[in-house]
Each structure stands twice: as structure tokens, then as C-alpha cells.
Amino acid sequence: MKALMSVGALMGAIGILLLAGMILDIVPSNTVRLVEGYMPMQVLFELTLFVAGFTGLSYMLGTMGMALPRFWQGIAFWCFILLYLKFRVYPPIPFSVRAMYGTVSLIAVFMWVSANEEDWSKFKQPIMNVLDAQSGANKLLRYAYLVLLPILIGGFSYNAMVPKSEEPIELRTVHPAPPASTKVHGKTYTLQTSQNPYRVNLEGKFDQEYSNANIVEQGMGRLMKPNANPWDKDAQGYLKYVREGGEIFFQNCHFCHGDNLNGRGLHAFAFNPIPANFTDPGTIAQLQETFIFWRVAKGGIGLPNEGFPWASVMPPWEQHLTVDEIWKVILFEYWHTGYYPRTWD
């Protein structure tokens, strides 16, 4: 038990040191990278580690006779969460969202300290002590509160009332429901039944198994399979079309969606919302190929009403590309990210 707890304590101490380093800008917040796409899981995992670490830490402090009162534990943990959200997570989370998380974790902390009558009275004991002001220090503290609280609250309310300019927040549906069919270059495509005509095996037959076996490998770098080089002179079928799709991608799409399909292209910094990150499992990985076809062909302006605001710069690519080119680009995007398109069933 003790060994386990000391491991926990070590973990907690290291965690606190790391976070302190990040706050003071000694340790860059990307030391341990948040891997694109796995960020929420990673954050949850890290927080779980921290909770385990803190449990160990408080146990160790207890056995050493330096137990931290429940009151301070609660406050410290809450502050920790706030600091973690502000300094650890990059790209930064907007304040309003952090405020929401902060409120939720405050409630959680309250539930924790008031789990039973005994804990609750332990928790509020320090507050009562200050109110009663039996000792000199507490008396001093009480006067300090008496003066500081009104000043602070007055200051906050002044701050809230002074006109300020913060960018209004706009929420948008990222993947609105697609229509049943879409008309591109004069031909109607039913989304449920259409197939990518280039997802074919060496015999030229539609073959998702075959193409899935030739996409790049998941894992760091997402490299192609050793024997599936689309630039091979003899590449046929699926791989040949992947190369053709890649050529179109690097003439039209990479400016925004990036050389690595992660939404960080040459012009991406200028746009808001930022271009879609295809390596994120929340984008093309959870969509059907025909959905992408519809989005590419119709662009930001073709979004249905729930897809507002139309701030997207994504053009209707049917203006620039033929149907074949659109299918090939889609083929390339799945190849390069190593994702399988979702099927309708």
C-alpha cells in the first residue's frame, strides 16, 4: 500500500513541477505533445494520473504527519484544474469554455468535500475559525477579509461594466446532415448508393478491402506501406489514382488543409474557422466518402441552414474540378491519413 502510494506521490509531485514549469514558461507546454485527434483522451488520462498522484501525495503527507486539511486540499485541487486547463492545453481553450469546466469541477470538489457530515464539518472548520476569530492570526485575517472583499468585489464589478471588446463566440455544426442526393456537373448522385469509382483493385473492380490494405500506416509519421508506393512507375489501380489525387491536392487544397493534411497550410493562419484537419479522427474518419464528395463539390456555401454561419471559405470545388478529380482527391485524403471511410451500413 505504502509503496503504491509513494509512487503516486512521486507522480503527483512531478506533475505539479511540470505544470509550474509550464506556467513560468520554463517548460514549453508542448514538451509532452498533445497528439492531434487524441487530445480529449490524453487530457482525461493525464488528469486521472494527477488525481492518483494527489491521492498518493496526500497519503504520504498524512503518514509524515503533515496532512493538508481537507479545506486546502479542495481549494488546491480546484486551482490546479484551472491552471491545467489554462497552461497545459494547447491550442488554448477560450475563457468561456474554461469557465464552464471550472464551474463543473467546483461542483465536483464540493460534492467531494461534502460527501458525509464529518467531512463537511472538517471542510468548513477553517471558515468558522476565521469568523470566530479566537486567535490573533485569525483576527487579522478576519479584518483583512472585511476590507479586501468589498474592494475586490467592487473592482470586479467595475471591470465587468467597463466596455470591452472580446470576439463574440460563434458555434457551428461541423458535420451537418447531408442531403439525400446532390447534383454535380449535371449528374445527380445519391449519397447512399454512390461509390468512389477509383477505389478499385488491380482488376478495376470496386474493392474497399483492397484499398484499405494499401493506405498509409497509422502511428507516428503515417508512412506508406513499404510495398505500396503510389509513385511506383508500375502502380496500377488504387495506388495510381491515389497519386493522381495527390497531384490535385497539392495544386489546390494544401494551401489551406496543409502538406500533412492537418489543416495548417500556407494560408490557413489567415482564416477563421481554421481549415479542417483530416488527421483528426473527428473529421473524414467518421464520415462516408459520399459525404465528403458532397462537401467538396458544394463547399461552404452549399451547407444547409444548420451549417451556418457561412464563414467557411471552402469554395464549391465543382467550379474548379471535374467529378473524377474530386473522387481522386478524396481517395488521396483517406490514403494519406490512413483512415477508412465509413460505410453506410
Partner: peptide, 30 residues
Amino acid sequence: AFYYTFLEPPTPREAYIYPVVIAFGVVLLE
């Protein structure tokens, strides 16, 4: 991209009055 033009309003007189009232209220509450 879309930016926002924002004409800064002058600080309203209320911004000076209310905080004082609120602070006084807090003293009473204490």
C-alpha cells in the same frame, strides 16, 4: 477572415456608481 469592427463606447457613468454601491452592500452583508 471575418473580423469585427467594434466602436468602443465611452465608459458609462454607471460603471463608477454601481461598484461602490455593491462594495457597500458587501460590507453590510459581512
